[in-house]
Design a protein around this nucleic acid. Structure first.
Lengths: 109, 109
DNA sequence: TACCGGTAGATAGTAACACTGAATAGCGGG
DNA sequence: CCCGCTATTCAGTGTTACTATCTACCGGTA
């Protein structure tokens, strides 16, 4: 999709993944597939896994190892209380940004 | 404002500045002041100058040195044709992102 | 004159984040 | 037995914003 998305995703991809996890638990491979389906065609698998490790180390998610019928065991992530709080904060920040951008787009600058 | 904004700005700040320049020409100090006024309270001055140099080197803006009554000469930036094209592309990318995020927020995932 | 505050820009070093590319590992089917 | 699919990990790279500092010009004031 191009470099612009890549740069814009910095900071937002984390929120996107947390938002996905707020709906239901999921594991890396699944999340990557879901993102691709949604149009984020060139998000590298490595990126998602790295992000999941980051948010795990920050204590925003809980992890459970679940055996898979096909392939190695999955690491299933679910949002915990701290993660929910962080996600709320993310939405506030996101709203602020979109408001500013919307104003700029309308040309009142 | 916090680390979340900082990370989200990566990739969007460039679009923001280009959008400002699409309305009128401006120089670094002015842009920084305008951003602060708009609520981007902790954007460092150095950040804006570095960004302006980047977009200048990529040929998205034209530059003109204008003497100032108070202080050193200003480097006044204005969007050129290539910059306008890039800005359009930015808005398309931005729209895509906001749509996806809006869907996630509504919880249909 | 000497100094200071406000205006204006440049720069070196750092941290965070997404990408690239490759490696590892388990399972089932031809 | 190897290939393809599922699933995760990791080392190295590039981009971007931040921090902190430096240069420079001007007007006012002691």
């Amino acid at each position: 999709m191009g470099k612009q998305v890549t740069e814009m995703l910095k900071g937002t991809l984390e929120g996107i993944v947390l938002a996905i996890l707020s709906g239901r638990s999921a594991y890396g491979y699944e999340i990557t597939a879901w993102l691709r389906e949604k149009g984020f065609s060139d998000i590298a698998e490595g990126t998602v896994y790295a992000l999941l490790i980051r948010i795990e180390q920050r204590g925003l998610v809980d992890v459970e190892k679940v055996p898979s019928e096909k392939g190695p065991p999955r690491k299933v992530y679910s949002l915990n209380a701290e993660g929910s709080e962080y996600l709320e904060e993310f939405w506030r920040t996101w709203s602020f940004l979109t408001e500013q951008l919307e104003q700029l787009r309308q040309g009142d600058n």
